[in-house]
């Protein structure tokens, strides 16, 4: 489904992503882990079209999207959430989901009206359980609910491939558990191919089928969660710090 080959991104002298090649198959749920500054979020930004790659190619469903802009990639079915929730604070939760429906591909294809789009937005808000908070301005929502808005907003794009960036950061264990289960459920319900970025493996150990470990812009391990966890010693030596448990 997604095929990344030899992707490189430099910021000044720093090579944030260094020749990364990655293959994600349809229907898979892949965990992407690594310490701070290992290039996980940069990789997401490259795939989402936020940054332009210095070299390498990104192919999504047979289409070369390396040169496409972020909004064109969205129309092809790539969605993401942000590590620090980036919702429009001056809009309500409902409005925040509505513009995603407007930006999605089917809005144009089905010639939807604004009313239809907002009704659909309600549907997605209901799925994540935020229907009652629809008219609250997002700047007044706590972080847990912002994460839910982000998920609803990504879903509203009707994506085939979704990248979830540290969706559990800053949440208490109960909330984190809820979000984790929600991501799982959404993946099954909407048949999403998922890439789940997390700081530590433990959290997503049970949820993902495959784990990719990044460090200093490179992929250093790729395999089943159990195997990767076994390699802890190796990885520790690699990274020189205890990040993957």
């Amino acid at each position: 489904m997604l095929h990344v080959s030899d992707l490189t991104k430099r910021f000044g002298g720093i090579i944030a992503v260094n020749g990364v090649s990655l293959e994600i198959r349809k229907g898979e749920i892949v965990g992407l882990i690594g310490p701070n500054g290992s290039g996980k979020t940069t990789l997401i930004n490259l795939i989402a079209g936020f940054y332009k790659a210095d070299s390498g190619r990104i192919i999504f469903e047979g289409v070369d999207i390396t040169k496409k802009t972020a909004d064109e990639r969205v129309k092809l079915g790539i969605a993401r959430t942000f590590q620090i929730p980036r919702v429009i604070g001056n809009m309500t939760a409902w409005q925040n989901v509505t513009y995603a429906v407007i930006g999605s591909r089917r809005f144009k294809e089905k010639k939807m009206t604004l009313t239809e789009a907002s009704m659909e937005a309600l549907y997605y808000l209901d799925i994540v359980g935020l229907l009652r908070k629809r008219d609250v301005l997002c700047r007044d929502l706590p972080i847990y609910e912002l994460r839910l808005v982000e998920l609803a907003r990504a879903l509203a794009l009707n994506p085939k491939f979704i990248m979830v960036d540290e969706v559990m950061a800053g949440l208490n264990p109960v909330e984190a558990d809820n979000v984790a289960r929600l991501v799982q459920r959404l993946r099954e319900e909407f048949k999403l191919t998922t890439m789940w970025v997390e700081h530590v493996l433990r959290i997503i150990m049970r949820s993902v089928e495959r784990v990719v470990v990044m460090n200093e812009g490179k992929i250093i391990a790729d395999g089943e969660p159990r195997e990767v966890a076994k390699d802890v010693g190796v990885i520790k030596a690699y990274m020189g710090e205890e990040v993957v448990i």
């Binding site: 936020f50 980036r86 429009i88 513009y99 930006g103 999605s104 604004l114 907003r153």
Partner: peptide, 26 residues
């Protein structure tokens, strides 16, 4: 009040968000 208004509003607030949710900001 139309869909364009929505998109304009998102662009005013955060262009990055706008483009990552399918709005052709340019």
């Amino acid at each position: 009040r139309s869909r364009w208004g929505f998109m304009l509003g998102v662009i005013n607030e955060d262009e990055d968000v706008a483009s990552s949710f399918g709005i052709d900001t340019k």
